[in-house]
Structures are given as structure tokens and as C-alpha cells.
Amino acid sequence: MEKHFIAYRQLRKEIDNASDKLLKEHAGNMQCKKGCDLCCMDYSILPLEFYSILDELKTRNLNTEELPEEENMEEGDCVFLKNHVCAIYESRPMICRTHGLPLLYTNDDDEWELSTCELNFTQFDFEKFTPENTYPQDKFNSELFLLNRKFVAEFKEEIHFGEFDLLPLKKLKSKL
């Protein structure tokens, strides 16, 4: 499985580089900062991401006793959010790495659509967004999907995953 984790982490580096570039370019329009958790929720992620993050967290020996108890949380809250700070920030999934950025993707009607956080770009002319100053979500999601397809084809544990299966992020906590 390690070869799949390496490929995933390389893609994650590419995503971080693209995200960092956009954060710098749009710094004046971004409200994202430590303590802002508007987009932090219990996302579901592909098995490759799930097991790669699990591998990293086990290596780090994350202390789950310091995390909030699920019975004290609202439904949909992220179990890794403690006092408005992400406990798995360095290992967080791709969806968490890109929130807030201007995301360009094709919708169900095969039309380009732009998505941003409601706190960001409040004084920005949306006509000025171009493919060069937005995050190419479809490109990276496609690459992640293809990596995941290879991963689930070789996954040999008690569970079998299909290439479209998703796992709730909160299940990571119970596996640590």
C-alpha cells in the first residue's frame, strides 16, 4: 500500500503548491485564517485518502483523548476540530486543503461553475476569474480518482471497496 500512499502524497503536494499560489494571488480577498472553521465538517473521502491519512496519524501517535467527544458535537461537525483548530491539519484531506479558494469545476450540465467561500471575495468582480487564477478542481479530483482506483483494486483487507465508495472522515478517529 505504501506505493499508493506515496503517489497520493505527491498529488497532495501538487495541490498544496497550486493552493499556495492562489492564496498569495488572492490574499486581499481571502478571510481564511487560523480559527476560521466555517468549512470544517465531517466530509466523506476516498479510501486512498482515508488509509493514507490513517497511516500518517498512526505514525504521529495522535492523542484522540484530546479530541472532542462525539456526543458533545453537532451532527456533521468534524471530529478533528478542537477549539477551532484542526488536529490533523498537516494530514487533512484534499477537500479541506482547497476550501475557500476560487474552485472551478464542471457542473452536472457540463457547464463551468465557480465556487468560493461566502466569506471570501465579497468585493471581487467575479468576471475577473479565469482558469489561470482559479483552482482546477476537476483536474485534481480526476487524478485522485485514478489513484484511488488503483488503490482499491489492490486493497486486501477484510473490506472491499468500489472505486466510488467514500468513507466518513470521523471513522478515522475510531481506527486510531
Results as ranks from 00 to 15, higher is better:
D110W: 13
L169H: 10
V152N: 10
E71T: 11
A87D: 11
R149I: 02
K82V: 03
F164K: 15
N133R: 00
K175E: 15
Y135G: 02
N120D: 09
L172G: 06
Y8D: 11
S142H: 08
N72I: 01
C86A: 08
Y51F: 15
F124V: 01
I88R: 06
F129T: 01
S44T: 12
S91R: 06
T122C: 00
C86N: 05
R92W: 12
E90N: 07
C96I: 07
F50P: 03
T106C: 05
F161S: 03
K170A: 10
V79A: 14
K21P: 01
T106P: 03
L147T: 02
M94R: 11
L104Y: 00
K21M: 09
L119S: 12
E154L: 04
F140C: 12
L81V: 06
L38K: 14
C86M: 06
Q10I: 13
E118P: 01
A18V: 08
L114H: 00
L119P: 06
L104H: 04
E113N: 07
E74V: 13
C39L: 04
T116E: 00
I45W: 09
L166C: 09
L119R: 09
S115D: 05
N141Q: 10
F145N: 13
K150L: 09
F164H: 12
C86V: 03
K171D: 14
I15G: 10
G35M: 06
I15F: 08
Y89E: 03
E118D: 15
R12M: 10
N83G: 03
T98G: 05
E69H: 14
I45P: 05
H99G: 04
L176R: 02
I95G: 02
E113Y: 08
L67N: 12
N61K: 15
T64G: 03
F80G: 08
Q123W: 04
S142V: 00
C96M: 06
S44C: 13
C117L: 03
F129W: 05
D165M: 09
F145H: 13
C117K: 02
E113C: 07
S142N: 15
K58N: 14
D20E: 12
L57C: 01
K21Y: 13
S19L: 05
I88T: 07
K175M: 14
E118N: 06
Y105M: 07
N83L: 07
L103I: 02
G76F: 07
K34D: 11
D125G: 00
E163T: 12
D42Y: 13
E2M: 08
F129N: 01
F80N: 02
M1E: 07
E132I: 03
